[in-house]
């Protein structure tokens, strides 16, 4: 008969259920992966000719002859925004009443909150890996060697978890899935108020200032160091630090918000 199950089993069952939901809606996965891949192709097509191999010996040779290496981090960062789905998953369950049903059962509320975050994380890993594979096919080749792919993926993962936490907090606080969805548009300014197309030294005026305060800058720079330059340890470290700090901050924020939301009225 029924016995008490552990927290981990609960988490596993709830995560499986969410994955089933994701699989049932494959089209929902397309926009973000499409935009990310689109960035890669379009920017490489448009700018690769100028800043790629033919830039060798000119002041524009910041891509070290391989513009795919230079632009891939932008696509990866864009792909990692898919972690923002976590908030949407959670709020959908709140809106449909599924959340209430779970609350009426002896299930840990942490398992209920953590499951969508895990699925968001999984989504980031899959989308970022896909972009990475596309990048490799069209010529990406990390300066630090193949381990660079894993390093970039791990930064993307932290960054994606940051978005997952942010979206959960935004979703729970706004109480609607539109709220969670709208909040994920933050990624636009975050992505473009950064050294997206050229190195930071080439940015001018306010954009240069804004990008210095934008954590995305350090994430992209770290990935670029890995892809283009090689072992620039302090730059790489700053990227991990920026992504890690962002993740810790937003996850804390998410947990606090979710705790408030699960408190009885």
């Amino acid at each position: 008969m029924n016995t008490k199950i552990t927290f981990l089993t609960q988490l596993q069952i709830l995560t499986k259920r969410l994955i089933l939901r994701v699989v049932r809606r494959p089209l929902a996965e397309l926009p973000n992966i499409f935009i990310s891949a689109f960035f890669l192709f379009v920017y490489d097509g448009a700018l690769g000719g100028v800043f790629g191999g033919s830039a060798a010996g000119t002041p524009f040779d910041f891509a070290n002859g391989n513009f795919v290496n230079f632009i891939l981090p932008v696509s990866i960062v864009s792909a990692s925004v898919s972690g923002g789905a976590s908030g949407i998953y959670l709020v959908e369950d709140i809106e449909s009443g599924v959340f209430k049903r779970y609350q009426s059962m002896p299930i840990s509320k942490w398992a209920i909150i953590l499951a969508p975050m895990l699925v968001g994380a999984l989504r980031v890993l899959i989308q970022a890996s896909l972009i990475m594979i596309i990048g490799k096919i069209i010529g990406a080749d990390p300066a630090v060697g193949s381990i660079g792919f894993l390093m970039v993926l791990s930064i993307a993962f932290l960054w994606g978890m940051g978005f997952a936490g942010y979206s959960v907090a935004a979703g729970v606080r706004s109480g609607s899935s539109q709220g969670a969805q709208a909040a994920s548009f933050l990624f636009f300014p975050a992505l473009f108020l950064a050294p997206t197309f050229v190195p930071r030294e080439a940015l001018r005026g306010w954009l240069s200032t804004a990008s210095a305060y934008n954590p995305t800058t350090y994430v992209i720079e770290a990935m670029r160091a890995i892809m283009v330059e090689g072992w620039l340890n302090d730059v790489i470290f700053k990227g991990y630090l920026a992504a890690g700090t962002f993740a810790i901050l937003t996850l804390t924020f998410a947990v606090l918000s979710a705790r408030k939301a699960t408190e009885k009225a």
Partner: peptide, 14 residues
């Protein structure tokens, strides 16, 4: 207890 609330909490995709 068993509970069936007024706003049915059912996952439509499953």
């Amino acid at each position: 207890i068993g509970v069936a609330l007024q706003d049915t909490g059912i996952d439509n995709l499953l």
